[in-house]
Measured scan of single mutants.
Amino acid sequence: MGFKLLSKLLVYLTASIMAIASPLAFSVDSSGEYPTVSEIPVGEVRLYQIADGVWSHIATQSFDGAVYPSNGLIVRDGDELLLIDTAWGAKNTAALLAEIEKQIGLPVTRAVSTHFHDDRVGGVDVLRAAGVATYASPSTRRLAEVEGNEIPTHSLEGLSSSGDAVRFGPVELFYPGAAHSTDNLIVYVPSASVLYGGCAIYELSRTSAGNVADADLAEWPTSIERIQQHYPEAQFVIPGHGLPGGLDLLKHTTNVVKAHTNRSVVE
């Protein structure tokens, strides 16, 4: 069995187990497998329904001669939608809004960016022009300005110390501490036991640490421990890039980060 097929099978099995364990909360999309990078042309966006009122959005972007996937989250909030992270750029984010209108038909009224990198804030200006209120932590807003990236308009308070959590509509926002970046936030959907790890969490097929220019490698494993301790009931975990899975993604990420750190020390 090929690795790609095995990865998709694991996603399907995880979703099936969740649907059985929580039949009222989960209505997993039966329309197909989780979209992969090879299936999404740059400039297009796919939506994948995880649970009743919960979707991931998947886009792709060219970077350094390669094409990478990027995940975000959409959560229903009454007759409105909360968006977590842009679709990595203005063109993708405009396509995301169009796809949401086509498939869901509810307005996106608020959006949260989970850290300051372009795959999370690139497209904020498109959201703002569409009347979406954009939010991020003060740290993310400051770092985005320093980096020359787009800056969300509103500040999220109460997320300055490791372990801080605040309720934001249908989700809980959690600051686990520094990891992929010093400002990275985690998003949890309690009604569906869905954990969105953003770039602080890796997919299972990833074996290298990737972009760690703004990471705190020493603190990252401790931050992941905080996530595990705060959300032990999480059933569906979405990484910032690639295929979702279960809580095993947290341990896998820790292993990859520690291996990278150990290699760096040896070198």
Rank of each mutant, 00 (worst) to 15 (best):
M1H: 08
M1R: 07
G2L: 13
F3M: 12
F3R: 06
L5D: 06
L6K: 10
L6H: 15
K8I: 02
L9Y: 06
L9Q: 07
L9R: 08
Y12T: 13
L13V: 07
L13P: 07
T14K: 07
M18E: 04
M18A: 03
A19Y: 03
A19L: 07
A19N: 04
A21M: 05
S22V: 10
S22E: 11
L24W: 13
F26D: 06
F26I: 07
F26P: 03
S27E: 04
V28H: 00
D29N: 09
S30A: 06
S30C: 11
G32R: 07
E33I: 07
Y34V: 08
P35L: 11
E39Q: 01
I40K: 05
P41W: 07
V42I: 03
G43Q: 03
E44R: 04
V45R: 11
V45A: 08
V45Y: 03
V45D: 04
L47H: 05
L47W: 06
Y48T: 05
Y48L: 05
Y48Q: 14
I50N: 03
I50P: 02
A51S: 09
D52L: 09
G53P: 13
W55Q: 05
S56Y: 02
S56V: 06
I58T: 06
Q61M: 05
F63G: 11
F63Q: 04
F63V: 05
G65L: 07
G65F: 14
A66F: 07
A66I: 08
A66H: 03
P69T: 08
S70F: 11
S70Y: 14
N71T: 06
G72D: 07
G72F: 00
L73Y: 01
I74T: 12
V75N: 14
D77V: 05
D77Q: 07
D79R: 13
E80V: 11
I84Y: 13
I84N: 01
A87R: 00
G89N: 02
A90L: 06
N92L: 10
A94Y: 14
A95H: 14
A95Q: 08
A95F: 15
L97G: 02
E99L: 11
E99A: 10
E101L: 10
G105H: 02
L106R: 10
P107L: 04
V108C: 00
V108Y: 13
T109N: 04
T109M: 05
R110D: 14
A111N: 06
V112H: 00
S113H: 14
S113T: 13
S113K: 00
H115M: 00
F116M: 15
F116T: 02
F116R: 07
R120D: 13
V121I: 15
G123Y: 00
V124D: 15
D125Q: 05
D125P: 12
V126F: 09
L127H: 00
R128V: 10
R128G: 11
A129L: 15
A130T: 04
A130D: 02
A130V: 09
V132W: 09
A133W: 03
T134C: 15
T134N: 14
Y135M: 14
S137D: 03
S139Q: 06
S139D: 15
T140I: 02
R142K: 07
R142D: 11
L143F: 14
A144I: 15
A144W: 15
V146R: 07
N149L: 14
N149C: 03
N149E: 02
N149Y: 15
E150Y: 00
H154F: 15
H154D: 15
G158D: 15
G158P: 14
L159K: 03
S160E: 10
S160H: 04
S161A: 11
S161W: 12
S162G: 10
S162M: 02
G163L: 10
D164S: 10
V166M: 07
F168P: 02
G169I: 14
G169A: 13
P170Q: 05
V171R: 01
E172V: 13
L173W: 11
F174D: 07
F174N: 02
Y175R: 09
Y175A: 09
P176Y: 01
P176H: 01
G177R: 00
G177T: 01
A179T: 02
A179L: 06
H180T: 01
S181M: 02
D183T: 00
L185R: 01
L185H: 12
I186D: 02
V187H: 01
Y188E: 06
Y188W: 12
V189R: 03
V189T: 09
P190Q: 04
P190F: 15
A192I: 14
S193R: 07
S193T: 04
V194K: 07
Y196S: 07
Y196E: 02
G197W: 01
G197T: 10
C199Q: 01
I201R: 02
I201C: 00
S205Q: 14
S205V: 14
T207A: 07
G210E: 05
V212M: 10
V212T: 13
D214W: 13
D214R: 12
D214C: 11
A215F: 06
A215E: 11
D216P: 08
D216G: 08
D216V: 10
A218K: 02
E219H: 09
P221I: 12
T222I: 08
S223T: 11
S223N: 14
I224D: 13
R226S: 07
R226A: 08
Q229V: 09
H230A: 08
Y231H: 03
E233Q: 07
E233N: 08
E233Y: 07
E233D: 09
A234W: 12
F236C: 13
F236W: 05
V237W: 11
P239L: 06
P239N: 11
P239W: 06
G240Q: 03
L243Y: 02
L243N: 15
P244I: 15
G245C: 13
G246Q: 02
G246N: 06
L247F: 01
D248V: 07
L249P: 05
L250V: 03
K251N: 14
H252A: 05
H252G: 07
V256W: 13
V257H: 14
R263H: 05
R263W: 04
S264G: 10
S264N: 15
V265E: 10
V265T: 11
V266F: 12
V266P: 02
E267H: 14
